[in-house]
Each structure stands twice: as C-alpha cells, then as structure tokens.
Amino acid sequence: MTDTTAVFEQPREAGFGDYVALLKPRVMSLVVFTALAGLVVAPVSVHPMIAFTSILFIAIGGGASGSLNMWWDADIDQVMRRTQNRPVPSGRVTKDEALAVGLALSGIAVLMLGLAANWVAAGLLAFTIFFYAVVYTMWLKRSTPQNIVIGGAAGAFPPMIGWAVATGGVSLESVLMFALIFMWTPPHFWALALFMKEDYSNAGVPMLTVTHGRKSTRVHILVYTLLLAPLALGIAATSIGGPVYLAASLVLNAAFIRGALRIWKRDEDVAEADAYAVEKSFFKLSLVYLFLHFVALMAQKGLAAYGLGGW
C-alpha cells in the first residue's frame, strides 16, 4: 500500500483545517478582539446574542478577505518562506476554491451582520473586505512601498464596526480607535520587515526596506511612532477615555517611543551583530502595545459600573 499512498501524498487532499487556514485564524483573533473592544466601549448596550453573532460575522468577513488575499497572492506566497505552507501555495486547496470560499463567506458575513445588527455596520464590513481584497491586495501591495500604510486601514476598521453594531453610526471615538490601529500598523510591519529581510525582496513586494533602504525604514518607524502617540493619548480625552486608560497609554507610548529611538539609532552592522534583537523586541512590544490599549479601554468601561470610570 505504501506506493499508492505516495501518489496522494504530494499535494494531499485538503482536510477541513485547510479551509479554516484560508481564513487566516491568527489575523481573525485580532479582528475579534478589536471588534469586541469597539462594541464593549460603546455607550449603548447590546444583547449578548446579538453581540456574539455580530462579532462572529465580522470575524468571518475578515476571514473571507484573507481567503481572497490568498487567491490573488498565490504566486508570491509560494516564494516567501513565511507563507509557503499556506493551503494554496502548498497545493492542498486550489486557487478557485479560495476565491469561491472568499466570495461566498463575504456575502454571508455582510448579509448576516446587517440582519443581526444594522446596515451601517454591514456597510462598513463590506467596505473593509473590499479595501483589503481589492485596494490593498490587488492595487497597492505590489505597486507601492506605502502598501502597508494604506493597507493598514483594512485592519483598523474592526473596532469601528463593533462601535457601529452598538450605536448604528460613526463618531469621534470610533474614528480615533481606527486611527490608533491605522498609525500603529506601519511601525509594526516595518520592524518585521527589518528582520525578515530576504523574504519580501525575493517575492518582488516593494517593501520600504527594499525600495528606500533600511536606514530610511528606521526613520519611518520613528516618525510614525511619534505621530501615533498623540492619537493614542487623544482617546483619553474622549468619552471612552479616563484615568486608567491615560495612565496605561502614557506608559505604553513612552516604551514604544523608546524602542523606536533605539531602532533609529542603530545601523545594520550593529543590528546584524545581535541578530536584530532590538527590532524583534520592538515587534513584540508593538503587539503588547495595541493589545493593552484596548484592554485599558475595556477596563475603563468596566470600572464605570463601580463609579471609577471616565472623567
């Protein structure tokens, strides 16, 4: 029997998990978390069942755009080591299947979010999917080094959608939560690009590190980190802010700016010598930074019930 199994083994037939992998579960977890934060901090309370369904379909919509991304990017995913094992480049799922899954789930997600919550939230979700799949994946990713700056907008929408689920609209608070993720994305990804260097250049994706050089990337990280701080602190002054959030944000921004300064001061030889230790720790810090900002916002909301909330 061994020789017959070998025939099936090369591109082995997809299991259920391979279709789940099309939805980029790790990106999905970030979408779930930030959408939940947007929903929780909103001043309108939502029935738990409606909240659950809304978050679920926001996540599925995000997953659908991931599947569309894998359909379009199958060729470059094959070149980059980080993405070689994705279902499409490894041959387990065909490109057409990825497209079908992406389109079907996009439609279901938008429709169900509209029915469960409201059509403002559903419209924002539809726009997010369009933005990630078409504007980022098809238009920008391969043509401009500003790809992740503008593409970051797609990842920044979930808290706004969560807020819209609760309130049925858009407001200063939800725009600032959007801005927080939007400005955070570039330094986060550029730090990654600094220590994952060969991958993007082999695939011909115009990352800033390739087009403008690594020195310029370090400057960009610092500038964006400095621009991010006032936005993050600005949220403290709105209706969803408060002393807990302000304290957390001050500490996190101080640490983030310190990390960006250290990256800015280094040159390639120093970075090469310690195997990009500073860049890697900045990347990890960026994840903590975003996570704790939203935790602080939710904590602020939770404390309000005990009279310890906002201003």
Binding site: R12, E13, A14, G15, F16, Y19, M49, I50, T53, L56, L115, A116
Partner: peptide, 25 residues
C-alpha cells in the same frame, strides 16, 4: 480526510441554523 471534512461542514451548518434560530428568538 473526506469524512473529517464532511463532519466539519455538518458542524458548521448546524451551528448556522442554531445562530439564526437564537437570533430570531
């Protein structure tokens, strides 16, 4: 593998029906 895939789809469909029902209530 195919059986696993079919069971996965079954679970998804049952969950979807449950969600629509719960939402309706």
């Amino acid at each position: 593998r195919r059986f696993g895939r079919n069971m996965g789809l079954l679970a998804v469909l049952i969950a979807f029906v449950a969600i629509v029902f719960g939402l309706t209530i």
